[in-house]
Amino acid sequence: MTALSSPYAHNNQSVRKVMLQVQLAALPALLAHIYLFGYGIVIQWLLAVATAIVVEYTLLKLRGRPVLPFMTDMSALITVTGLVFCIPPEAPWWVVVSGSAFALIFGKHLYGGLGYNPFNPAMLGYAFLLISFPVPMTQWTMPGEVVGYTLDFMHSAQVIFMGHFDGNSLDMITGATPLNELRTGLSQGVMVPDTLRAHDSQLPWGLNSWAWINIAFILGGLYMILNGTISWQYPVGFLGALSAMAFIFEQIDPATYPPLSFVLLSGGTMLAAFFIITDPVTASTTPRGKLIYAAGIGVLVYVIRSWGAFPDGIAFAILLMNIAVPLIDQYTQPRVFGHRR
């Protein structure tokens, strides 16, 4: 008989439970998304999950790993969920399929599977899509408040699989995201306040659909912080740094730099703050390291958004900071009890 070491007690937490909690926390945002943008995201999500199942099964088999425990650890589910929120709801089906497959194969399995990947798989997949298919990735379905209606399930399916619905072109319902508009406006000499004023929203408090989805993410995020699924350092560091950047530059030149509220509630800010950068595998793990890592992403996001080539810099900011994680961990080791610093 082999000696089994103590402890013989456990708090009954498991990887699967952690992942399911994250999935649960994403539910408010999913519902908001459906309400505001229609059922496209549901189809995308189903497609992504189907892809994930196939890819996971094949790769686990190929790698000679036990299939069942690793299929049911739900980590792939979190990866594709993160990715789906970044993809335009009515993007063609092959976008999400190739993105999910790339994320799982190149982002996870080729590095040795769960726990061994240095880069956030969802963001790797997203970056891959952004670079490979820039056009479908920037054609966002307009929310109901802008177009006047949202597509129902069947129509969404038609668009996603065939590229049109009832003979209508996709262009009718797609447009630029606020971040994109801002960028285009600036390049045409339109000041930021003017661009923003041109798109006043009828939704409560004058917040547009993208902002409401961000708020839904905050709700889910707060839930995760309270039950201990994610550390508070990530959102605090990220949002803190991003706010600081936004505040400073807005004070310098309000005509060129968007206001704080817009920066925080546009694009994937809150998705990143609570769901993406909190992926523990690719994030720093020391308490101070988490803050530094998150703050670094915050700064990079603002830099890329303001001066980079892409409208939203979340993916690249995260991937860049992923590289820095070992270094951060190395230099932020906490003081061990009884040791001097």
Partner: peptide, 22 residues
Amino acid sequence: AEMQMPCIRCGACMDACPVNLL
């Protein structure tokens, strides 16, 4: 016994360590 899974670097152990180890 629950099956042992790979470490996901969640840091729960670090938060629980009374000696502040990693």
